[in-house]
Every structure is written in C-alpha cells, then in structure tokens.
C-alpha cells in the first residue's frame, strides 16, 4: 500500500476512567495524498477520533502516528510544530468572532510568519480567501455578518493559511441545505486537487457525499472501525450494517 498519513493502532479512549469507552480499539490507516471520508452514525466517536488526530484529546491507550511520528511521544513544542502541518475546518467554522474575515486568515500567519512584513501577510491571506471563493466585498465583514456558506469559505481559507499537509473537515455539510452542501463538497474536492500531495480527511454522516468525492472510505461504528477500503469495496460489502447505512443514505437523498 502507498505511504500513510495517519496510522492508528488499538486506540482506546475513555472519558470516565475506564468505566465506558468511546473508542474501543480503533485500527486505521489513512493513505497519504488521498481524500478519505470517515462515515458513521452520529455518536459513534467520529469527532472524538478527529480530536485525537489533532492532538486535542489524549488517548487512554494505543498508538497514533501522524506523518510518521508518534503523537504522544512528542514534547509540547514538537506537538505545536506538528499541529502547524494540519489544517482544520470545524463544523461551525469556529471563526474568531471579534475579527473580520481577512483578519481571521491573517491570524495564523501573523503568529507563525513573524519574519514576513504586514503587506505580505495580507497579500497571502487575500489569495487564500480568493481561492476559497469568498468575494472581496466580504473581506472586511465580521463572521456574524456572513452567511453559513461564506463562513465555511473563510474557515477553509484560515485552515489552509499555513499550507498544511493534512486537511481535516468535521461534518462540513451537516445542517446545510442541498445546494450549499454540494457547493461545500465541491469546494473540498477542488481544494484537495489544487494542493498536490495533500491529504484530506472528511468526517461526515452524509453518505452521498462520501461516494461522490471519497477516494478512500472508513466506516466507524460504536467506537470501532467496521470497514476501511475504496468506495467500490463499500458497494460490494456484504456487511449488514454497511448495506443498511448505504440503503438509508440513498433513500434520504
């Protein structure tokens, strides 16, 4: 198999000192350079898994390698460096609500490109916003003045500000209308294609999108990986739960 971006072995997570486990031994390899979709019913631990990859949550046990390095063997400073190689679009974009769209994108640049002069930072931020498709008339608006779709675009531009190698999306289309859903899916796909060698990981329960844009798919159920493979593997799977999920997913559309 090709090189992997993320390697997870027997990852377990309990929030209550081992009484119950949210992740019950996840084994998962996410290939480098591909667009991977992680699907599963809500409440199965998809977001918790994502937060582990980001180093926001500490596993109870197990191993988690990001870009070849064991995440929790790192010192805090190395972890911070590693995080710069990841970009995240949060479900509700998580924009800083006291900063304009442009300032939001400038923020990570100001923090980590201290040697750049201010004009260059604004230049780069502007380019990032433009390629995420935000009209320049919205650059100086606060997040509260932007629509949901625009906020996603700003969030994406901010996630891409530091040119990350892995881009993660948590439920990018949940709660959006069908038109907007398609727009965001396209945006994710075109972003993935635009940045050569980038790895994209999308967490969603939108099966339609998973088949439309996914190159690799992972299904999570009750804290474990049920199936991991190509979309073709999923269609041909005879696992009952996978078929049920697929049937349900398509009936809804």
């Amino acid at each position: 198999m090709a090189e992997s971006a993320i390697e997870i072995t027997d990852l377990r997570k309990s929030f209550d000192d081992g009484k119950t486990f949210v992740l019950k031994g996840v084994d998962l390899t996410i290939p480098k350079g591909k667009l991977t979709v992680i699907i599963g019913y809500s409440g199965t631990g998809k977001s918790v898994l994502l937060k582990h990859i980001l180093g926001l949550l500490h596993p109870t046990s197990g191993s988690l390698k990001v870009l070849g390095k064991e995440l929790w063997d790192m010192k805090e400073s190395e972890l911070m460096e590693m995080r710069k190689r990841l970009g995240v679009l949060f479900q509700y974009a998580a924009l800083f609500d006291d900063m304009t769209a442009l300032e939001n994108v400038c923020f990570p640049l100001r923090e980590h490109r201290r040697q750049w002069d201010p004009d260059k930072i604004i230049d780069v931020a502007t380019k990032k916003l433009e390629s995420s498709g935000l009209g320049s008339e919205h650059f100086h608006k606060l997040p509260s003045e932007l629509s949901g779709g625009m906020r996603k675009r700003v969030g994406l531009a901010r996630a891409l500000a530091l040119d990350p190698e892995i881009i993660l999306y948590d439920e990018p289309t949940t709660g959006l209308d069908p038109v907007l859903t398609e727009m965001v899916d396209d945006l994710i796909q075109s972003t993935h294609k635009r940045i050569p060698g980038s790895t994209s990981i999308i967490v969603t329960h939108d099966l339609f999108a998973a088949f439309r844009i996914g190159e690799h798919m992972v299904m999570l159920d009750k804290g474990k990986v049920l199936l991991s493979g190509t979309p073709e593997d999923f269609r041909n799977s005879d696992l009952e739960l996978v078929q049920k999920f697929i049937a349900k997913g398509f009936k809804k559309e």
């Binding site: 937060k51 980001l54 926001l56 911070m80 460096e81 590693m82 995080r83 710069k84 990841l86 970009g87 995240v88 949060f90 479900q91 509700y92 998580a94 924009l95 800083f96 609500d97 923020f107 990570p108 923090e111 980590h112 901010r158 530091l162």
Partner: peptide, 18 residues
C-alpha cells in the same frame, strides 16, 4: 466560555498556538 463551546479555543490550539 463562548470561545470554548464554539471551538474557537480548539482552533487556536490546532494552529499551534498555546
């Protein structure tokens, strides 16, 4: 509190900022 529940604090952390 608002920054925490709207994941803005997570966003800061993920940017490699303490």
């Amino acid at each position: 509190g608002t920054m925490r529940v709207s994941e803005q604090i997570d966003a800061i952390q993920v940017m490699g900022i303490n």
